[in-house]
């Protein structure tokens, strides 16, 4: 699903954020991306949803080399990717349901269907009763769940989530992680950037650890959990 070959990302005047990244994430995988702040997790996610382009190296999404993709082709690739942003990126001028339906509007889904699917998705994240309020009236955790609902509402092939449980209490974290596991079981590839060691230990998924822009460990299952307990 995602392949990176010798990918480096640098911004003018600054040291590289990512250095010589090589990775291969298969279709249907669930991957945690972890590492300290500033390790390059968010930048790596941005390369995956084409908010940034690699300075050097090749990025392949669903077999397509994004370097060869024309600007006009990017929206169509993004339609298969759901993104949960660290800062939620919810529109304060729209209701919760409208925020969730935004993705479907872009896809040209009929109005009634947009509303139905948005409400169904909000039910799955436990926020159906907040459908018609402004996101500004929600807590951080609730906004995070709305952001997740928006990312999942169109059943994307790939879900990228930047700290999706960062603002949630333990009970809600489990609920959201169970939802992600369920979505993953239905075939969606999931990449979650997180600081949360307990999450990695509990779910024992493939874990990539980034440090100073480089992948320093790539472990699966119990080894991933051990990796976190060693480095946390």
């Amino acid at each position: 699903m995602i392949q990176m070959f010798h990918v480096t990302k640098a911004y003018p005047g600054d040291p590289p954020v990512l250095v010589d990244i090589n990775l291969d994430i298969d279709k249907g995988e669930f991957v945690f991306l972890t590492g300290p702040s500033g390790a390059g997790k968010s930048t790596l996610l941005k390369l995956m949803f084409l908010a940034e382009r690699a300075t050097r190296g090749q990025v392949l999404l669903a077999g397509r080399n994004v370097a060869r993709l024309r600007e006009s082709g990017i929206p169509f690739l993004r339609r298969n990717i759901g993104v949960v942003f660290q800062d939620f990126k919810l529109l304060p001028t729209r209701t919760v349901a409208e925020n969730v339906g935004f993705t479907l509007d872009v896809l040209g889904t009929p109005r009634d269907e947009v509303r139905d699917r948005s409400l169904k998705m909000l039910r799955r994240v436990g926020l159906e009763h907040k459908a018609d309020v402004s996101p500004l009236k929600l807590s951080g955790g609730e906004q995070q769940r709305v952001s997740l609902a928006r990312a999942l509402v169109n059943d994307p092939a790939l879900l990228l989530a930047d700290e999706p449980t960062g603002n949630l209490d333990p009970a809600l974290t489990v609920e959201i992680m169970d939802l992600l596991t369920d979505v993953n079981a239905r075939g969606t590839t999931i990449v979650v950037a997180t600081h949360d060691a307990t999450l990695i230990e509990r779910y024992q998924k493939r874990t990539l650890r980034l440090e100073k822009g480089t992948v320093v460990a790539d472990e699966r299952g119990a080894k991933a959990a051990r990796l976190m307990s060693q480095t946390a």
């Binding site: 949803f49 908010a51 006009s72 929206p75 169509f76 690739l77 993004r78 339609r79 990717i81 993104v83 990126k89 529109l91 001028t93 935004f102 993705t103 872009v106 896809l107 928006r150």
Partner: peptide, 16 residues
């Protein structure tokens, strides 16, 4: 601009 950014990130074309 945030609305435009989000639209673009969820797959809206420039024309849309």
């Amino acid at each position: 601009r945030e609305e435009i950014e989000i639209q673009k990130l969820v797959g809206a074309t420039d024309r849309f």
